[in-house]
C-alpha cells in the first residue's frame, strides 16, 4: 500500500504531507529531512542486505544512496529507502518546477503504476488550480489534502485512474 504522500519544494520545505500510517511529528520531521538529503547525506552510514540467489551477503557499509536533493534530472525516479521508511519500502518521486512529488509505498504496489499515479495526481491538481504552482498548494493546503488527495487516493483506490485500456 501507499505509505505516504509527500510534496515538498526544492529547498526541502514540506508543502503537503499525508502519512497513511501514524507517525509521530518528530518522526515525520526526521523522515522528511532524510528523504530530502541535503548536506548531511554523507553522515548516513547504513548496513545494506542484498538477497543474492542462494544466500544473504552483507554488502558491508555504504553511503546512503543519493536522496532527492542530490539527484540529477535525467536519472530514474526510484530511490531505495529501506533505511528511512523501514524494510521493503520504495520511493518514487517526480520533480516538477519547484516541487518534488514523493510517493512512499511497499512491495504490494507496482513501481511504474506509482509513477503514473503521480502523473494523475499532478493532472488533477492542474485541473483544480489551472496552472498549478507552489503557492497554490501553500494557500489551499487543506483543500488539496481533503478534496484531491483523500478523495482520489485512500490507500489504494483510484477511481479516475487512466489505466483503463
Amino acid at each position: 500500500m501507499i505509505r505516504a504522500v509527500i510534496v515538498m519544494n526544492t529547498q526541502g520545505k514540506p508543502r503537503l504531507l499525508r502519512f497513511y500510517e501514524f507517525q509521530p511529528p518528530e518522526k515525520q520531521k526526521e523522515l522528511i529531512r532524510s528523504i530530502y538529503g541535503g548536506g548531511e547525506r554523507y553522515s548516513f552510514f547504513l548496513a545494506y542486505f542484498f538477497l543474492y540467489s542462494k544466500f544473504v551477503v552483507c554488502l558491508c557499509i555504504f553511503i546512503l544512496p543519493p536522496v532527492l536533493s542530490s539527484r540529477a534530472d535525467n536519472v530514474s525516479n526510484f530511490v531505495k529507502t529501506d533505511a528511512i521508511f523501514g524494510q521493503d519500502t520504495r520511493v518514487v518521486y517526480k520533480h516538477l518546477a519547484t516541487l518534488y512529488f514523493v510517493f512512499v509505498f511497499d512491495s504490494s504496489e507496482n513501481e511504474l503504476a506509482m509513477l503514473d499515479l503521480i502523473q494523475v495526481f499532478v493532472e488533477t491538481l492542474e485541473r483544480c488550480f489551472k496552472n498549478v504552482c507552489e503557492l497554490d498548494l501553500v494557500f489551499n493546503f487543506s483543500k488539496v489534502l481533503l478534496a484531491v488527495l483523500d478523495n482520489f487516493n485512500l490507500c489504494n483506490w483510484l477511481k479516475k485512474l487512466l489505466f483503463d485500456s
Binding site: 542484498f50 540467489s53 544512496p65 543519493p66 540529477a72 536519472v75 530514474s76 526510484f78 530511490v79
Partner: peptide
C-alpha cells in the same frame, strides 16, 4: 550510466 541506481543494479548483476 549517470544514474546511481542503474549503476548499482548493473554492478550487482555483473558480480552475479
Amino acid at each position: 550510466d549517470p544514474d546511481p541506481n542503474i549503476r548499482h543494479e548493473a554492478l550487482r548483476l555483473i558480480m552475479n
